[in-house]
Design a protein around this nucleic acid. Structure first.
Lengths: 261, 261
DNA sequence: ACCTGAACACCGTTCAAGT
DNA sequence: ACCTGAACACCGTTCAAGT
């Protein structure tokens, strides 16, 4: 399954004189970011013309104002006052656009030390990550879910910051790497589900009544634990769950520090 | 933003005589599952006709054989030998189909006790969840990312099992609920990113060389931690990272047990 | 090198008409 | 109640032709 992304079932192996490009890099992957940096260098933008930057910012506007479904190549072009075909001079596909947006947004994450030790630093970082990811309107994992994700400049900057944090806290290089990746996955996972239908910043409480009703309709004897814990389950806010999960994570990290052994 | 899912910008408030339905429930939400259970009861299937079950199973075939992009309402209809319009007698939209698939797949998760204590039980459960989620071919969070997710019958069955596990381990009701949700989010998050371009069961090692090259091209002084930890970062396998994260999680849970205080 | 109108090959969904 | 052909209103992407 090498020609992923192509629609035609016909492969053209050997037809082209093999210009080293072989398989096109998947948007968001390490190779894609590498190749993109090279291509970007030989651009000759015109006065008042398009640019990747302008495209991404316009796309982000649409995303925030109208949601993911409204974000089409055509809608971006329209808002920019050009034809949709013009965008393909700067991005090769809609997937590329989304990969660019995903990393662009991560640039909003503030990377600050609190001065109150590693645990406070990590906690602040995780809350900040969550804040920014949730400020992204709709595609909970649109960009992040792609394979090889996390290779964009802003994600690398985040990884660098986190690695240093964990190393200074006392973890080994190996532990720091694994813990950093785990942290990123965990925060991402916490924003994937249990967001209320309304979207944005709501806490899941909105759907509590609906969930309550669903549980009430269940066969009484088949879900004893869910029955007794019912109210807690339906009313659990996403923020509280995140705080709890973060505590578990931090406790786990703490138990690996040399000072703890 | 109440008319989510509709394309027309025109609202028809007051036009319809308000048949209690108001806003249509979002596919995968608690209310949607509840309403669906009712509708399913008054079906009168014909001999050899369609059924939601057949549609979901056919869709899953396409998903496994050809990936998410190939899964269209039309392709499902074609494989079933009917017109695409016919499917709309059983599902109201493609989103509904995906929500049904997402929960259907969760039915493959085996819920067994190991007999070796809560920690072994939780570990087995998490590995089993991960196995099944990764066996789902491509939509890492297609169904799970929708708001209010986790209300399908198979997810409820999983939640029930996990709640009982944590309660018996010694957590309070509240802790058990929060820990269960955290666990589900964590496992989901671990399958969202860092899967190799090839898809399936690969461990991220596939893209190691590409990532290595990307790091080598970075400004030397800006990423010191990433530089020194570089090889570990590029070569980290998704399975090893998951195992590490699971250990952090389990250690965190252990520290909350009464026996630990 | 950049931009564009027009077209191609798809989508999901609806609806009137049939059984 | 169920099924369907045909159509509607979109998509992403390509390509020849322009500057």
């Amino acid at each position: 399954m090498v020609t992923d992304g192509l629609r035609s079932p016909a492969h053209d192996d050997g037809a082209a004189p093999a210009e080293e490009t072989a398989v096109p890099a998947e948007p968001g992957s390490a190779r894609w970011w590498t190749e993109r940096a090279l291509v970007d260098r030989r651009r000759r933008p015109r006065a008042g013309g398009l640019s990747t930057e302008r495209i991404v910012e316009t796309a982000l506007e649409i995303l925030r104002e109208e949601g993911l479904e409204a974000l089409t190549v055509r809608s971006v072009a329209e808002r920019l006052g050009t034809s949709n075909a013009s965008l393909y001079r700067h991005i090769a596909s809609r997937d590329e656009l989304i990969a660019l947006i995903a990393d662009h947004v991560m640039g909003d994450i503030r990377l600050d030390r609190t001065g109150r030790g590693w645990r406070a630093d990590v906690e602040a970082l995780m809350l900040e990550m969550r804040r920014v990811i949730l400020s992204q309107p709709l595609p909970p994992s649109a960009g992040r879910s792609k394979s090889g994700s996390g290779s964009g400049p802003n994600m690398l900057r985040l990884v660098e910051f986190a690695l240093a944090l964990y190393r200074e806290a006392g973890l080994t290089d190996r532990q720091a790497v694994y813990t950093t990746i785990t942290m990123i996955e965990f925060v991402g996972g916490s924003t994937n589900i249990r967001r209320s239908p309304a979207g944005r910043g709501s806490n899941g409480v909105a759907g509590a009544a609906d969930l309550r009703q669903l549980l009430d309709g269940l066969p009484a004897d088949d879900f004893p634990a869910l029955r007794t814990a019912g109210n807690l389950y339906t009313a659990a806010s996403a923020d509280d769950v995140f705080t709890h999960g973060m505590t578990l994570f931090l406790d786990g990290v703490a138990s690996q520090l040399p000072s703890n052994q």
